[in-house]
């Protein structure tokens, strides 16, 4: 059985920077940006993309539904 590799895509303009995905990521992939979006919020991004397993925990808890999750088995 292979290893899961994942990635997320964040709808930056709809992200409100609440940080809930960050604390719920089991592999410390996500951080909040230093810059802000058009609404003035920092937004979630993959700071450590190599750690992402595509578990989708971030998307499950994202109140604004702005995270898409992709996953492949390598």
């Amino acid at each position: 059985m292979g290893r899961a590799k994942g990635a997320i895509v964040v709808d930056i303009e709809k992200c409100k920077g609440c940080n809930i995905c960050v604390v719920n990521c089991p592999t410390d992939v996500i951080e909040l940006s230093k810059e802000v979006n058009g609404k003035g919020y920092p937004y979630a991004y993959m700071e450590n993309p190599e750690n992402c397993t595509g578990c989708a925990n971030c998307a499950l808890v994202c109140p604004d539904g702005v995270i898409e999750v992709y996953r492949v088995i390598v």
Binding site: K5, K16, C18, I20, Y41, L60, P63, D64, G65
Partner: peptide, 27 residues
């Protein structure tokens, strides 16, 4: 190579509209 339609495992349901939610961050 990961972010391809065939690899998508989660996105919001189409029964949620594309309107930005009016709730506070983290609600």
């Amino acid at each position: 190579d990961i972010i391809k339609p065939e690899n998508k495992v989660y996105s919001k349901t189409s029964l949620m509209t594309d309107n930005a939610l009016s709730y506070c961050p983290g609600c």
